[in-house]
């Protein structure tokens, strides 16, 4: 039986192949909270420009601390954080520039949204950048359009659903035109339909050239969606690998207390029974079905 690997996006590592420079780099960063809790411990991480990154770790592993360090909300006591090759400048002007280029979307929308209406909230960031009203208005409209929330621009925030609030949060950061968008567990609390909608938004943002870094607990989702997977445990990035190479990193996943995605297990089983080639590695159920259909056709 001959099989052929389909030429589909499933094998692509678009971000990394498209552009090879490092947008954000954590170099042995250590951060300790005032109460003595270690947030980050010699944490090293590299985010390539234009890539889709998933940061996976248990609760309390340091994901939010890492994100707040990346946005300049927290300042590490040890190590260096570089943005676009330069160490972060913690002066007022430096932070202003950093926060316009590294946008952070918080996990709980009610933590981020504090204005009365959607339009007002989205305009908060651009106006803080010192933009004039007209430019800010254009950016707000574009950001709301990017997350398909333009119809809700004049609605009060409390009348929105949870998923809609999340999208407004993303628009609020997008309106600042960041190069890197960091999302703290964006899929948490969303139903299947909302997740699909949010995923479509993220895909569009990535297609427009924005680098994405999101925290998630969902290894299946990370395997399907990301270009790079970073594992974090006890404030330290324990492993980072191309998502396509995840099947080869089962040991790293196990040490972080994570299972191998069910799809990988299934593929291994099918490969062991010579139904599918061992090197095909589908990243989603859709890919697997396409691969099986192709195999069946070839057999016929």
């Amino acid at each position: 039986m001959t099989t052929q690997t389909p030429t589909m996006p499933l094998m692509s590592d678009s971000g990394i192949s498209r552009n090879d420079d490092v947008l954000l780099e954590f170099d042995e960063v250590g951060f300790c909270y005032p109460d003595g809790n270690a947030g980050l411990d010699d944490c090293s991480l590299r985010i390539m420009r234009g890539s889709r990154n998933a940061l996976i770790g248990a609760n309390g592993a340091g994901k939010t601390t890492l994100f707040q360090n990346a946005n300049g909300l927290l300042r590490p006591q040890r190590g260096v954080i570089r943005h676009a090759g330069q160490p972060i400048d913690y002066s007022r002007a430096g932070l202003r520039r950093l926060r316009s280029e590294v946008g952070l979307v918080f996990q709980n929308p009610d933590q981020q949204l504090f204005s009365a209406s959607v339009r007002e909230d989205v305009s908060f960031g651009p106006l803080n950048l010192g933009l004039d009203m007209e430019t800010a208005r254009q950016r707000v409209n574009a950001a709301l359009k990017a997350v398909s929330m333009e119809k809700f621009a004049d609605r009060p925030v409390h009348n929105l659903s949870f998923g809609q609030k999340k999208r407004v949060c993303i628009a609020g950061v997008l309106a600042m035109r960041p190069q890197l968008l960091i999302l703290d567990e964006p899929m948490a609390g969303l139903d299947h339909a909302m997740r699909s909608e949010l995923l479509a938004v993220l895909d569009d943002l990535h297609a427009s050239g924005i680098t994405l870094l999101l925290a998630t607990h969902d290894i299946d989702f990370a395997y399907r969606w990301a270009d790079r997977i970073h594992l974090i445990a006890s404030g330290r990035c324990t492993a980072a690998f191309d998502a396509a190479r995840l099947p080869d990193n089962a040991a790293a996943l196990a040490s972080a207390g994570l299972p191998v995605p069910g799809l990988v297990e299934l593929h291994r089983l099918l490969a062991a029974r010579n139904v599918l080639p061992a090197d095909s590695a589908p990243r989603s159920i859709g890919d697997l079905i396409a691969l099986l259909n192709m195999t069946v056709k070839e057999c016929q």
Partner: peptide, 24 residues
């Protein structure tokens, strides 16, 4: 806690203390 969280979220969007919003 909410006040603290809102302050952090506002800082992440370059807040300098003043609230500026777009008018409809």
């Amino acid at each position: 806690q909410r006040a603290q969280a809102l302050n952090i979220a506002a800082l992440s969007r370059n807040s300098d203390g003043a609230f500026r919003f777009l008018e409809p």
